[in-house]
Amino acid sequence: MLEGKFDEASLLKKVIDAMKDSVKLCNFNCTENGISVQAIDDSRVLLISLLIEAGSFEDYRCDRNIVLGLEMESLNKIIKNGNASDMLTLVAEDSPDALNLIFEDKRRDRIAEYSLKLMDIDQDFLKIEDMKFDAVVNMPSAEFAKICRDMKTLSESLQIIITKDSVKFNSEGDFGSGSVVIKSFTDLEKTEESVRITLEKPINLTFGAKYLNDIIKSTPLASQVTIKLCDKQPALFEYQLPSGYLRFYLAPKFED
């Protein structure tokens, strides 16, 4: 049996909000360590890897491994009905045909209970070896989100160029072009405002702006985003959860 209680529904609300536009159907794998998901978008360009460790829950137990096949849009409809500050408990039997979601407000005078039908989802599972990266950028997630939104107004592609101590986001469109340069920066008082660049080799990669604008829906989850890049390889965008992560692997664009 699975029983996982979040102190606040807001964490799962944000996670589902970040995923629902990229993937429609997901298997949520529940083990004693927590809940994990791997899902690929229909175009097979973006892969989502979610890990909500048991430590992200106030109470968590899962005696036997359970797979919950969930339709993200339906899950989102139910999740939206709960208040962000409600306690949220996920409950499923050992061989479940439904996931129960219980929202309780903190004063315990209101309990809302929902049941979501499960689906049998046949999904490819991709093996992601330990990847080596040539460049790692830690930057404020809100800053990254603004750059992705701004650059998308110009072009469907966003070029990321990393040299020693700066990251250049470059966009070449039909009616004009634009770029934003971010430099390494340490804010000792507000560390979440800092930009850190760790570089082994210079990077010049191009990504689809549409996918980046899906990824930045994770912004409310974490004040910083970690971007890991390697020449001619998928990039990794990571948002840390209190205990766990939401990762996106994005395939680059190449010269034809």
Partner: peptide, 14 residues
């Protein structure tokens, strides 16, 4: 002209 790569050319099914 840029072409979008697929993740399937980088990762194998397990």
């Amino acid at each position: 002209k840029l072409k979008q790569a697929s993740l399937m050319s980088f990762f194998s099914k397990s």
